[in-house]
Simulated assay, not measured.
Amino acid sequence: MAKSATPKPAEPPALKRRQQFAQTYQMARKSDPTIGRWVLGAGLVGLVVGFAVFWLIVGRNSVIGLVVTIVGALMLATLAGLTVFSRRAQRAVYGQMEGQVGAAAGALGLLKRGWHVDNAIAFTKQQDVVHRVIGPPGILLVGEGSSARLKGLLSAERKRHERVAVDTPVHEIVVGKDDGQVPLPKLARHVQKMKRQVQPAEITDILARLKAIDASRPILPMPKGPIPTSMKGMRGQMRGR
């Protein structure tokens, strides 16, 4: 009789969340030393405002009202602190990522379900990178690096995808601060706000068609330097939960 493998005990989700929160805080604090004071201040303001509001509504009537007032004030203080933390942490993390190879991949990792991201489908020796996103707007080719070198790289990838995914909209996005480019901190939001031109059922067909491109694509060495992935782990905090 074969021995059944003993599953390893899963790590408690609460512990993982605390670890992610602590990691995010330590990373953000490197470029924003005052983040702790801002979060504490927001929490105190939320506590005072929450207590005053709940006290005026229910707190004066009974002991239960007082309990509800305290609980409500604590919840509002927590929400205010987390909101300030998420915004300042997002700003700090994007500041640290900007200029790194593959920074756009980290930002694209914040996209929710319904989006399919393929990192570094093409790049140059100078570490100009093109990522691919499949979603409701169609096919998005996201380039980061030198705009002059990306022009030819994006054009070649666009033609390659249009030959396979006929009638599917193909969009080019260049990440940067120049005119016509999308700043890194606004990349995920910019992608999500693009016009919906493809139905969910069509996305499955597009992904199947693109397998032909990926199968014929030579195995390319990854550009030097790690592609940031910490943004994915920070998704909860950066959405202000």
Rank of each mutant, 00 (worst) to 15 (best):
A10M: 11
R29I: 11
E144Y: 07
V63R: 11
V191Q: 10
R88M: 04
E157Q: 14
D178T: 09
V182P: 00
Q126M: 09
K232T: 12
M238I: 13
L44S: 06
P218W: 11
A52L: 15
L187V: 04
I203K: 13
A107Q: 07
S155T: 10
L154W: 01
G143R: 02
T204H: 13
P200W: 09
S146F: 00
Q192R: 11
G225T: 03
L111A: 04
I70P: 02
V129L: 04
M231C: 07
K8C: 06
L153S: 04
L140R: 09
F21K: 02
V182A: 04
I139K: 01
H131W: 08
G180A: 07
H171W: 14
R196S: 12
I121S: 01
P223N: 13
Q19G: 07
P183G: 14
R235A: 08
G36F: 01
A103H: 02
T204W: 06
P12L: 13
V133C: 08
T69V: 05
P136G: 03
F54Y: 09
L79Q: 10
G59F: 09
Q127W: 05
I227Q: 07
K195W: 04
Q197W: 08
V166L: 15
V175E: 01
L15T: 12
S62K: 11
I70K: 07
L15K: 14
Q19H: 13
L82I: 01
S147H: 14
A22Q: 10
R60T: 11
L187I: 01
V175L: 04
V84K: 02
I35M: 05
Q127H: 08
F123S: 11
L79H: 12
K8A: 12
L150K: 03
G180Y: 04
M194C: 02
Y94G: 02
Q20P: 04
K3L: 15
G41T: 06
K232M: 11
L210H: 07
R235S: 12
V198G: 00
K193L: 06
H116M: 11
